[in-house]
Simulated scan of single mutants.
Amino acid sequence: MFSRTERDLVRRRLLDLADHDPAVVAAAITGSHATDDEDRWSDIDLAFAVSEPLDAVMHRWTRHLYRDFAAVHHWDLPSGPAIYRVFLLPQGLEVDLAFSPEGDFGPRGPKWRLVFGRSAPPQPVMPGGYDVIAGLAWHHALHARISIERGRYWQAEHWISALRTQTIALACQRLRHPTSYAKGAHLLPPTITGPLETTLVRSLEETELRRALSAAVAALSAELTRTDPTLADRLRPILSDLAASDDDPREG
């Protein structure tokens, strides 16, 4: 794995490259390094405002990353007008470069430190939609049960794990912790994480999948009761049915 020294050197080289690129009119450090929360395992997160078409600038920077930094692979994540190009460097160092049109360059959250150039005023951060998270949770519970009935046990394991992820997100949102990618999961109290341990799928046996789904549905119901008792009451009959054992195959 990469060292702190190697990571910091790569970051300085990238910022120097940006400073000498006439198409990059502003740059910012984002992520944990911007707020001094970086640890030994943090990756590199940078954002660039560009005055030329994004495709051309990103193509040029991609050549730099492969030629000068020995990049192994990359992929893109669009986000509004920006595109995050995510690179994997040797020794497992991840480099996330966000390219934005000049007029759309600005912070989308607190983890932002302008290095040079100008940025737009901070944009209000919209909280994650509770209904979306809750909706994904019951959706995943439903599809986990259907997958079991169809005998698609790997798919069932996928949906049970995805259900647990949404339950964690609901708890994190309620307690004002980060909700994405389980970033706030380690901050949850044992009273929440303890029952979630029982939702882990230990094998692909049908009885085990049914047990794990029942535990996952119980954890979801408990969290819904804490956050939205009205919704919990409406969903309870359906969730109880999904958690119940039923040997009759279903179609659909």
Rank of each mutant, 00 (worst) to 15 (best):
Q173V: 00
T167P: 02
Q123R: 15
P107E: 03
E157A: 12
T165A: 15
D131E: 15
H177G: 03
I148Q: 09
G184P: 03
P81A: 15
W112S: 06
P189L: 05
V132T: 14
A98R: 03
S79V: 14
G129K: 14
D68S: 08
H143G: 00
P78T: 04
H64E: 11
V86N: 13
A82Q: 08
W159T: 00
D55L: 05
R85K: 08
W61A: 01
A71D: 05
L93S: 09
Y130N: 01
Q91E: 14
S100T: 04
R63V: 12
G128Y: 10
E149A: 15
K111W: 07
R60Q: 04
G103L: 10
A98F: 00
A134T: 02
H143Q: 06
S161T: 15
E52G: 00
P110N: 10
A169R: 08
I148V: 15
P110W: 05
L175G: 02
L114R: 07
P122E: 13
H186D: 13
F99R: 00
L77S: 11
A156T: 04
V115R: 09
P78K: 06
T167V: 11
L163C: 02
S51C: 09
W75H: 14
P121N: 07
V115P: 01
I146M: 11
V72E: 14
D76E: 13
R67M: 03
I168C: 09
R145S: 11
A141R: 00
R176P: 00
S119I: 01
M126L: 12
R152T: 07
L77K: 14
I148E: 09
P178H: 08
A98P: 01
V132C: 04
S119Y: 01
D68V: 00
Y84Q: 09
G184A: 05
D96A: 10
H186V: 11
S79C: 12
V115E: 14
G184D: 03
L188V: 02
F105G: 03
L188W: 05
I83E: 06
G151V: 05
T179R: 12
E52W: 04
A71C: 04
L187M: 12
R63D: 14
L142N: 08
L136H: 13
Y130I: 06
R174Y: 08
V115L: 09
V86R: 09
D96H: 14
A71P: 07
R108F: 04
P53S: 02
H186A: 15
S147N: 09
A141N: 02
Y181I: 08
M126R: 14
E102N: 07
Q155A: 13
G117C: 04
A144P: 03
H64Y: 15
I148D: 06
A134W: 01
P122L: 10
P122C: 08
E52V: 07
G135S: 05
H74W: 08
G92I: 08
D68P: 01
L54R: 09
V125E: 13
E102R: 13
D96E: 12
C172S: 11
L93R: 08
S119C: 15
S100I: 00
Q91S: 13
Q155D: 13
P101Q: 01
